[in-house]
């Protein structure tokens, strides 16, 4: 009766958000690793799956969500071993116990159990660079970050810079808190003496000063550290993410 009612198209990009989320959590999928690295890695993983329940669970989850990731066009997964492997932290030695490389696909036969409801046309998952640009776009839009960084502020007095900082602070803070959770790594007061226990993640705590001997270490907490869990927006298919702020023309 009212002709303007139109029903939207089918859900063609099902699973996109999930795909983007996974990509953000685990990083973009890397190129296939060399054969011997994979051989070594499959051994490490097999062992770890057996001894570390939590790790096994994560691998399982990754394997289950596999169809949502882009690098799985039919025919590409022909290798008998793990084919898409990306160590999470590049700067940590692979032998270290606490490194948890994310494994995309452990067993080739996992394909058979792939979630059928996530099947669909290939998704556009933002690359590492695209994700960074999106974050920059959000911080620019809400807190004018790029405007601030790109301006020469040498000749302005502190009052002007301060006024700008308020805009920057209010906008960026709001955006950051909306997009994710920011939590300190250490709960102790800064400038107090703390103990760094054995087995702590070496990425979480940076030791400075006279670093000798083994953990536990005693020292003064100079900076409590930040951990951020982000859930970035996803670009739509045609969106050029390098446009962090469009030029504005008022008509």
């Amino acid at each position: 009766m009212i002709p303007i009612y139109t029903v939207g198209g089918p859900a063609i990009e099902k699973g996109r958000l999930l795909a983007c989320l996974i990509a953000l959590m685990f990083g973009p999928v890397a190129d296939p690793l060399p054969f011997f690295t994979r051989l070594w890695f499959s051994f490490v993983c097999a062992l770890r799956v057996v001894v570390d329940g939590a790790f096994a669970g994560r691998v399982w989850a990754v394997r289950d969500r596999k169809p949502a990731l882009p690098e799985t066009s039919p025919g590409s997964a022909v290798e008998p071993e793990a084919d898409d492997v990306e160590p999470e932290a590049d700067d940590v030695e692979p032998e270290a116990d606490d490194v948890e490389p994310e494994v995309d696909d452990v067993e080739p036969d996992a394909d058979d159990e792939a979630d059928l409801d996530a099947a669909g046309p290939p998704d556009v998952t933002p690359s590492r660079e695209e994700a960074a640009l999106l974050l920059l776009a959000v911080l620019q839009r809400e807190g004018r970050l790029v405007d601030f960084l790109e301006q020469d502020i040498e000749n302005f007095d502190d009052a002007d810079v301060g006024a700008a900082a308020r805009v920057l602070h209010a906008g960026c803070r709001k955006a950051l808190h909306r997009l994710g959770d920011v939590t300190p790594i250490r709960d102790e007061e800064e400038e107090t003496r703390i103990t760094v226990e054995e087995g702590i993640d070496t990425g979480e705590v940076k030791l400075v000063g006279a670093v000798t001997g083994d953990a536990p270490y005693r020292g003064i907490l100079r900076h409590k550290g930040w951990r951020v869990a982000l859930q970035l927006p996803a670009p739509t298919a045609e969106h050029d993410v390098s446009v962090v702020a469009p030029a504005e023309v008022e008509l």
Partner: peptide, 30 residues
């Protein structure tokens, strides 16, 4: 523009975009 995110509140606003801006693609309708 071109940026999709999840929020618990959906502001009750409709933007009728000019043709020059192209479609307002969402995952379920490009």
């Amino acid at each position: 523009a071109g940026e999709l995110a999840e929020q618990r509140l959906l502001p009750s606003f409709i933007y009728i975009s000019p043709e020059a801006e192209g479609p307002q693609a969402v995952p379920w309708d490009s």
